[in-house]
Amino acid sequence: MINEIRDNLGDFEIIDGLEEKLALCRQSMEEVDLKLRREKLSPEGRKSLERERNLLMTKADNYEKELSVLRKENRKNAALAVAMVLLIALIYACWTM
């Protein structure tokens, strides 16, 4: 899934999108938690909200894992780019001496 998206967007845009989804997911979890604490609910209503909260927690965990992987890849790519620039600078310096 991520590879398909990456064809159309840069890594930063993917990371921003996932961070946005994670923030919305966390906000929804807070709203569900408030309802569970403050409202008097039937047993069925409570179970329904608890299932929704568990689903949101699972989504949030998945988003966090994807973000972790993307950030790690991003750091590797940045380090590779810096190494390439330094190598080119070294070759240029040796060539012009």
Rank of each mutant, 00 (worst) to 15 (best):
I2H: 01
I2M: 04
I2Q: 01
N3Y: 01
N3I: 02
E4Q: 08
E4C: 08
I5T: 03
D7N: 10
D7F: 02
N8I: 13
N8F: 04
N8W: 02
D11R: 05
F12M: 09
L18I: 10
E19R: 07
E19H: 05
E19K: 06
K21F: 10
K21I: 02
A23K: 14
L24N: 06
R26N: 13
S28P: 01
E31P: 00
V32K: 02
V32S: 06
K35G: 05
R37Q: 13
R37T: 14
R37N: 12
K40L: 04
K47V: 09
K47E: 15
S48W: 14
E50W: 10
E50G: 09
R51E: 09
R51H: 08
E52D: 09
E52P: 01
R53P: 02
R53W: 14
L56H: 02
K59T: 03
A60K: 02
A60T: 06
E64S: 14
E64L: 12
E66V: 00
S68V: 07
S68W: 00
R71A: 07
K72D: 03
E73Q: 07
N74K: 15
R75E: 06
K76G: 03
A78V: 11
L80Q: 10
L80F: 00
V82H: 14
V82N: 13
A83K: 15
M84P: 06
V85E: 15
I88M: 12
A89T: 12
L90V: 10
I91S: 13
I91L: 13
I91N: 11
W95E: 09
T96Y: 02
M97G: 09
M97I: 11
